[in-house]
Design a protein around this nucleic acid. Structure first.
Lengths: 115, 115
DNA sequence: CTCGAGTGCTAGCTATAGCTAGCATGATGC
DNA sequence: GCATCATGCTAGCTATAGCTAGCACTCGAG
């Protein structure tokens, strides 16, 4: 995912939400010229700014980070991040989910190598 | 989690790993003065730098982000979104994980209302 | 003693994230 | 026509992330 793609991603979400660039910038608490530059790929926003935009667009922060390349998809970090950060889960439940997830990944990797 | 705490967290991991500041900086591909400043809370590293340090210390990127305050603990829908977006999972596995997650949430909600 | 290697740090620099002030354009109402 | 509001954008600025050059210190070997 290149930085220009995160800009297009944000712009697409904003247009789907039918709000103007200024409205989103205000809701995300960043300046509208800066949001314009982000959408056009002229600036590379920090994780904090991405999190603010994600909140304003009602997208989860991990999903936004995934799109921006700050979390990878190859080693299941997106899922593990979300499990780790979920406050509704107990520690034991987090461990269970993590182990189940890793078991699935191992099965899939084994099936792949069997091909 | 304040930024000075992420510095102490990194320093603690490094000391546990018994490597020098220069060794970690080299493995993380950042300058050693900068790593020194990060550990002492004088600089606020970007998510990319945190990910590099995490990889060098063999800590997952999401765990590092959590410590740095870049991932929160409140967004529960992130788990479902991350499961849905994970390319390594089959459709059946996604359904299983989703159901298990939702079961856990229901159990926790019921226990809460019993209190 | 000196020298070399290792350690962590300081000072000052460059590049850029994110901002403010303000512009250009279009639409609407008088 | 003008004024006002909304839209997205440009230019130039400030603060700081991250760097290089080099310092001070410790330890061990000769």
């Amino acid at each position: 995912m290149q930085s220009s793609d995160i800009g297009a991603f944000i712009k697409g979400l904003r247009e789907n939400a039918r709000i103007s660039l200024r409205q989103l910038a205000e809701q995300a608490n960043i300046s509208n010229p800066y949001l314009s530059q982000i959408e056009r790929g002229l600036r590379k926003p920090s994780a904090e700014v991405l999190a603010q935009i994600a909140a304003a667009l009602r997208v989860s922060t991990p999903a936004m980070y995934l799109k921006a390349g700050l979390l990878g998809t190859d080693d299941g970090e997106g899922v593990l991040a979300a499990i780790a950060g979920d406050q509704q889960l107990t520690v034991a439940q987090k461990q269970s989910l993590t182990q189940i997830y890793e078991t699935f990944i191992r099965e899939n990797a084994r099936e792949k190598s069997d091909d």
